[in-house]
């Protein structure tokens, strides 16, 4: 489709596609399961008029779901990956604007509102990493027939990626708690 995009081994592209599918699938599930709370989270970003919050929340959740499904199907995978990188860039700007406003104590809403995760610069770095993965997933793979062992490799890699991603997220959830403890110790 795009000749300028570098070619990679198909398994690398597949791992990137399915990782993004899992990520966006979980994210939209989290948002859907507590949709009202997600609307409040979105409102707290203070970037869109209050009347539009529900519409945007529906659009964001729907788009994440579409990306998740689209990433799993070869003909749509590339467009899904490009949409994902656009969405992640918009999220990055939304977070950056609020960080500059000094609103660090609002919820990220990233993986749904169930797990409270405050805004921080680390989220921007994480988003850049995710955008890189999306670009890998958008590249055209070289011609190679996939075998059964490729499927095993895909499954193993996905488990590892998810564990790592969850661990990184947990560390970002932890960080403000540690800061809070530190400031109490300093106040003594």
């Amino acid at each position: 489709m795009l000749a300028s995009v570098p070619t990679l081994d198909p398994i690398v592209v597949l791992i990137a596609n399915y990782s993004m599918a899992l990520l966006f699938g979980l994210a939209s599930y989290g948002k859907l399961s507590e949709f009202r709370v997600f609307c409040v989270t979105l409102e707290e970003y203070q970037l869109i008029p209050v009347q539009l919050v529900t519409t945007v929340a529906v659009a964001v959740t729907g788009l994440e779901l579409l990306i998740s499904v689209g990433a799993c199907w070869q003909p749509t995978a590339q467009s899904a990956m490009f949409s994902a990188s656009v969405l992640l860039t918009i999220y990055g700007f939304a977070i950056a604007i609020n960080l500059m406003r000094g609103r660090r104590d609002i919820d990220c809403g990233c993986t749904g509102p169930a797990r409270r995760q405050l805004l921080s610069g680390w989220l921007l770095i994480r988003n850049v990493g995710l955008i890189v993965i999306a670009f890998i997933g958008a590249s055209v793979p070289s011609e190679r027939a996939l075998t059964a062992s490729d499927i095993v490799l895909l499954a193993l890699a996905l488990i590892a990626v998810m564990a790592l991603y969850a661990a990184i997220n947990q560390l970002m959830v932890n960080a403000p708690r540690l800061d809070a403890l530190d400031s109490i110790m300093d106040a003594r």
């Binding site: 193993l156 790592l164 969850a166 560390l171």
Partner: peptide, 11 residues
């Protein structure tokens, strides 16, 4: 994978 899960559990 074992290490990834361990890091997650520790975090």
């Amino acid at each position: 994978i074992g290490l990834g899960v361990t890091v997650l559990a520790l975090a």
